[in-house]
Simulated scan of single mutants.
Amino acid sequence: MDRQTDKTDAEWRTELTPEQFRVCRQKGTEPPFTGRYHAFKDPGLYRCTCCGEPLFRSEEKFDSGTGWPSFWQPADEAAVATEEDRSHGMRRTEVTCASCGAHLGHVFPDGPRPTGLRYCINSVSLEFDPEGP
């Protein structure tokens, strides 16, 4: 996959579906329990929809009951970036792909051990790779 990060909105629109563009490039959110990976349990690796970077492994995925795929840690800490998000009258921590800046979702401090984190990720921002790395 192309890992260029300085694409224009017009270039992203030609490569992504309208829903992928809305979520990944405009910081949208898919409705809960609608994403293809929220209840998905196959072993493998979840990659960024926009650039293909490995983000999360199935071994760290858990059912949070929230309606979005949830992970207790990324495949590599350097794979994701975080920043404060004060949109919608809330204070949250946004998670983005460190490689291309795609919006992935948010991370919350209410996950399982060993990290205590819940990376709440939009399915549309992920592509599943059954072969792994």
Rank of each mutant, 00 (worst) to 15 (best):
P114Q: 01
A102W: 03
E127V: 13
G111L: 01
P31G: 12
W68S: 01
D63G: 10
G111C: 05
E84C: 10
E53M: 13
V80T: 07
C100F: 05
L104S: 07
K27N: 13
L126W: 01
N122L: 09
K61W: 00
R57N: 09
G105S: 12
R118Y: 05
N122E: 08
D9V: 11
V107S: 01
C50K: 02
T5Q: 13
D76C: 13
E94H: 05
A78G: 15
P130L: 07
R13G: 02
A79K: 04
E15L: 14
K7L: 13
H38W: 12
G105W: 12
G105F: 15
V107T: 02
F21A: 02
F62Y: 08
G52F: 04
P130S: 05
A98I: 03
R47H: 13
P54V: 04
V124I: 11
G132N: 08
A75S: 12
E131C: 15
T5W: 14
F62W: 06
E127P: 07
E83M: 15
L104A: 09
F71M: 03
T96W: 12
S125A: 08
R86H: 13
P32S: 14
T5F: 15
S99K: 11
E84A: 15
P74W: 04
L16H: 02
A102R: 01
P112F: 04
L45K: 08
D129C: 07
H103G: 07
F21Y: 11
G105E: 09
P130Y: 09
C50T: 01
Q26F: 14
D129F: 05
E84L: 12
V124H: 00
F33A: 09
M1S: 14
K41G: 15
T14E: 14
F56D: 01
K61R: 04
F128M: 07
S64W: 00
P69T: 08
E30D: 05
F62G: 03
P114M: 01
E11T: 05
R91L: 15
